[in-house]
Measured scan of single mutants.
Amino acid sequence: SIVTKIISIVQERQNMDDGAPVKTRDIADAAGLSIYQVRLYLEQLHDVGVLEKVNAGKGVPGLWRLL
């Protein structure tokens, strides 16, 4: 499923980069989806406690990390 793919992308990127959070844009590119589509999935995963959003604010790139 797309959700499983997104989780594995975040996991893979974090492992490659010493646990650093992953940008929404990088996840979207790797999943082959638009940034808006991916954001909806990321928000859902956040709501159920799978991911945390590391930063927030208007015009700030979203950074995500697995919990």
Rank of each mutant, 00 (worst) to 15 (best):
29 D>P: 01
16 M>D: 07
63 L>W: 09
2 I>F: 06
54 V>T: 04
49 G>C: 05
53 K>V: 04
5 K>A: 07
65 R>T: 08
27 I>H: 01
39 R>E: 14
56 A>T: 11
67 L>F: 09
42 L>Y: 01
11 Q>C: 13
66 L>N: 01
40 L>T: 08
63 L>M: 12
51 L>A: 01
43 E>I: 06
10 V>E: 00
28 A>Y: 02
2 I>R: 04
67 L>D: 05
48 V>W: 15
42 L>G: 00
31 A>S: 08
57 G>H: 07
45 L>E: 00
19 G>I: 03
12 E>T: 11
42 L>A: 01
38 V>Y: 00
32 G>P: 00
47 D>A: 15
51 L>E: 05
45 L>G: 15
57 G>C: 07
11 Q>K: 13
31 A>V: 13
25 R>N: 07
65 R>N: 04
10 V>A: 02
3 V>T: 09
14 Q>L: 04
21 P>G: 15
62 G>N: 15
53 K>C: 08
65 R>P: 02
39 R>A: 12
48 V>M: 15
12 E>P: 01
52 E>P: 02
65 R>L: 11
61 P>Y: 14
15 N>P: 02
12 E>S: 11
38 V>M: 05
26 D>A: 08
33 L>K: 01
41 Y>C: 07
63 L>G: 15
54 V>K: 02
1 S>Y: 09
20 A>E: 07
20 A>F: 06
49 G>L: 03
29 D>N: 11
65 R>Q: 07
19 G>R: 05
6 I>N: 06
47 D>N: 13
4 T>N: 12
14 Q>I: 04
47 D>I: 12
5 K>S: 05
28 A>Q: 02
11 Q>S: 11
67 L>V: 14
49 G>N: 03
37 Q>S: 07
1 S>F: 11
45 L>N: 00
21 P>V: 06
51 L>Y: 01
64 W>R: 01
29 D>V: 12
11 Q>R: 14
44 Q>L: 14
67 L>M: 11
47 D>Y: 12
42 L>M: 02
50 V>T: 04
7 I>C: 05
49 G>P: 06
9 I>V: 07
9 I>M: 03
16 M>K: 13
53 K>D: 09
39 R>M: 12
39 R>T: 14
36 Y>P: 12
17 D>E: 13
60 V>H: 12
18 D>S: 12
33 L>D: 04
11 Q>M: 12
26 D>W: 06
43 E>D: 08
53 K>M: 07
47 D>F: 12
54 V>S: 03
61 P>L: 11
40 L>E: 08
28 A>S: 04
40 L>S: 07
25 R>E: 14
4 T>K: 14
34 S>R: 06
37 Q>P: 01
24 T>W: 02
26 D>M: 05
44 Q>A: 14
26 D>C: 04
22 V>R: 01
25 R>Y: 05
35 I>L: 10
44 Q>M: 15
34 S>D: 09
20 A>W: 05
49 G>D: 03
22 V>N: 00
38 V>P: 00
51 L>N: 03
66 L>D: 04
63 L>C: 08
24 T>C: 04
33 L>Q: 03
14 Q>E: 05
27 I>F: 02
58 K>V: 10
32 G>C: 06
53 K>H: 08
17 D>P: 06
10 V>R: 08
16 M>T: 07
3 V>Y: 15
3 V>R: 11
41 Y>M: 07
6 I>A: 01
52 E>A: 06
3 V>E: 05
56 A>M: 10
55 N>D: 11
56 A>I: 10
14 Q>H: 09
49 G>K: 03
21 P>M: 05
60 V>T: 12
35 I>K: 03
61 P>N: 15
12 E>A: 10
43 E>M: 08
34 S>W: 04
34 S>M: 05
67 L>H: 12
41 Y>L: 10
39 R>V: 14
55 N>A: 10
42 L>N: 00
23 K>A: 13
32 G>F: 03
24 T>E: 14
29 D>I: 12
60 V>E: 15
39 R>F: 09
25 R>W: 07
17 D>G: 15
46 H>M: 10
34 S>E: 07
11 Q>L: 11
47 D>C: 15
34 S>A: 07
59 G>F: 06
6 I>D: 00
50 V>M: 07
10 V>T: 01
7 I>P: 01
55 N>C: 14
39 R>W: 11
13 R>L: 15
43 E>S: 06
56 A>P: 10
27 I>M: 01
55 N>Y: 13
51 L>T: 01
61 P>G: 15
4 T>L: 13
28 A>T: 01
66 L>Y: 13
50 V>E: 02
65 R>G: 05
13 R>C: 09
63 L>T: 08
21 P>C: 08
43 E>P: 01
49 G>H: 06
44 Q>Y: 15
6 I>T: 00
45 L>W: 01
30 A>V: 04
52 E>W: 02
29 D>K: 13
5 K>H: 07
8 S>W: 11
52 E>S: 06
47 D>E: 13
45 L>I: 06
29 D>S: 11
60 V>N: 13
45 L>F: 01
49 G>S: 02
7 I>D: 00
19 G>P: 04
17 D>V: 11
40 L>D: 06
25 R>K: 14
67 L>G: 09
23 K>Y: 05
29 D>R: 12
1 S>C: 15
57 G>S: 07
41 Y>F: 09
25 R>Q: 13
8 S>T: 10
39 R>N: 12
38 V>I: 10
8 S>D: 08
43 E>C: 09
59 G>L: 05
25 R>A: 12
36 Y>V: 12
58 K>M: 09
55 N>I: 07
17 D>Y: 15
15 N>Q: 10
19 G>Y: 15
33 L>A: 02
43 E>R: 06
45 L>Y: 00
29 D>T: 11
37 Q>L: 15
55 N>H: 10
2 I>S: 03
